[in-house]
């Protein structure tokens, strides 16, 4: 069980959290301007790296906030966690 650093609450055990998929997948401000290919990419395509991965978690049984985590999917080492809207460190 991971120990996840919530940017609001500090280190908390994984069972308090819900995984939220790849981070920084931005929904276009005006989807009408996106072509079909771009929207399909947005809907269905996600990275699945062996190594560093920026991903979303939600502190569901905690402060309820979504936030981002930079985690190595092979070692499970968490390098950083940061709030929504902040840049990947």
């Amino acid at each position: 069980m991971l120990l996840i650093p919530c940017p609001y609450c500090g280190n908390r055990p994984e069972i308090e959290f819900a995984y939220g998929g790849e981070a920084h997948v931005v929904r276009a401000a005006d989807p009408r301007k996106e072509d079909d290919a771009a929207w399909t990419e947005f809907l269905y395509f996600r990275k699945n790296p062996r190594g560093d991965h920026a991903e979303r978690w939600r502190h569901a049984f905690g402060c309820g906030r979504f936030f981002n985590v930079k985690r190595n999917t092979y070692t499970d080492h968490i390098e950083a966690s940061y709030r929504i809207g902040e840049m990947l460190p």
Partner: peptide, 13 residues
Amino acid sequence: LTMMEDYLQTEFP
């Protein structure tokens, strides 16, 4: 509720 929170927090803050 989770889906709404997701949009509210990450897309429509």
